[in-house]
């Protein structure tokens, strides 16, 4: 099972919630707050909703809301993917 990467996350954020032209997502953004990247809680909910469908994992709203940075979000998604893999 392949891991969910920062590039995957950027792709889903751009598609689900657009991109703030005044910011650059291509730098080192792993530890940057989503708010500083122009993404609010709705943007994260929309992205999480798409990932739940596309990856077949469950991403509870409270845990998505607690993931303040891309690094935390990647950890959340990859943990869920690993659990799903183990369960299978």
């Amino acid at each position: 099972m392949s891991a969910f990467t920062l590039e995957d996350l950027k792709a889903v954020m751009r598609s689900a919630a657009g991109e703030d032209e005044s910011l650059n997502l291509d730098g080192d953004i792993l530890g940057v707050d989503f708010a500083a990247l122009g993404y609010d809680s709705l943007a994260l909910m929309e992205a999480a909703s798409r990932l739940q469908r596309d990856l077949g994992v469950e991403l509870p709203e409270e845990e998505v809301a607690d993931a303040a940075t891309p690094a935390a979000f990647l950890t959340l998604v990859n943990d869920r993917l690993a659990e799903a893999g183990t369960a299978r």
């Binding site: 919630a17 657009g18 991109e19 703030d20 032209e21 122009g38 929309e46």
Partner: peptide, 8 residues
């Protein structure tokens, strides 16, 4: 309009 607003 800003890119962030297009999908919404």
């Amino acid at each position: 309009i800003p890119g962030r607003l297009l999908p919404q």
